[in-house]
Amino acid sequence: MTRESSRSRTRMWILINYSTCAVLVAMPLVLRMLENWWLRVGVLLVLTTLMAISIERAFGRTHLWSLTRKKSHELDEREVELTYNALAIAYRVMSIVLLAAMYLIILSHDELLMSYLGWAKPIASVLAIGLIYMAQTLPSVIIGWRELPMDDEGVETTV
């Protein structure tokens, strides 16, 4: 497998992971639409499984999760540069996303607007969980999205 196709695969798992996360955040709204109790449990089960698989594929196998959590003295100079850039971009993105989320939460206290939109109040707590998840994974996502994955070619071999 080429490094380019490997990057495409990482990107695909990142997209699946964040899409699943977005659906889980909107779950209070989705559950309202589903009348059947078993269907609700089934949807939750499928989404949770997909979330777990995509976390493992996007951040576990690629070592992206551990890369952004290592202390700087455990990294070499290239990895320090890589994580520094990813953390700087993640900080900028998160500040914008958090401000937007705060605005949404403030709006959710407007009873009239919420009743008009048909939104449920619990969205605020689920949204907070989604934001915490995003803050934790965004630096890894940035590295996984931008960088060509590491190859194992020539690790043991001499050529």
Partner: peptide, 14 residues
């Protein structure tokens, strides 16, 4: 004193 993957990046001039 670097990660083996860094050697790959160095060799490719990346």
């Amino acid at each position: 004193g670097v990660n083996y993957q860094t050697v790959g990046y160095l060799e490719r001039g990346e």
